[in-house]
């Protein structure tokens, strides 16, 4: 580790700890203690959902799903799942917001139609991704140079299709 990295590290660790300390002090002095249990449940909840749901799901997808799909589809599938997860979070908020609208201008759109439209965008994105991945050099090709020139030709032909 160079001296520069060593010093930057110290500054970051001390500065970061100070910022955390200020945040905790702010919480202590402004948030009424009756609200702490709920806030702590929500703080811990994120970690629990990650460790108990998201991480095992990701392990399962990596261990069982990705190896069973053709290589060009793995990346797009992974990317599509990332987009689907994002959409999942926003979909929960949309549906909950629409279910308990405080006034008609909150979530004015039909949430299911909105989610369907976004889901179609995700699928199109994954298909386009697979198409682009297919136009790249494939692994395992014994003649890498040839693969590159072939894929280049394919890629330049791509948009015209």
């Amino acid at each position: 580790m160079s001296a520069g990295v060593r010093w930057s590290r110290r500054v970051l660790l001390v500065g970061g700890a100070a910022l955390i300390g200020f945040g905790l002090w702010t919480a202590w002095s402004t948030v009424p203690s009756s609200q702490w249990p709920s806030a702590l449940v929500w703080l811990a909840g994120g970690v629990v959902v990650h460790d108990a749901v998201l991480a095992p799901l990701a392990v399962a997808v990596g261990a069982w799903v990705l190896p069973r799909v053709p290589p060009v589809w793995r990346g797009p599938l992974r990317g599509g799942l990332l987009a689907a997860g994002t959409l999942g979070v926003l979909a929960i908020a949309l549906v909950a917001g629409a279910a308990d609208r405080r006034n008609p201008s909150v979530v004015p759109q039909d949430p299911l139609a909105a989610i369907a439209a976004a889901a179609i965008a995700v699928v199109i994105g994954a298909v386009v991704g697979a198409f682009l991945a297919g136009a790249r050099p494939r692994g395992g090709d014994p003649d890498a140079d040839r693969a590159t020139s072939v894929s280049r030709a394919r890629r330049s032909a791509g948009p015209r299709r």
Partner: peptide, 8 residues
């Protein structure tokens, strides 16, 4: 989204 399922 004006969804407040918490008590803080």
């Amino acid at each position: 989204f004006q969804v407040y399922p918490w008590k803080f």
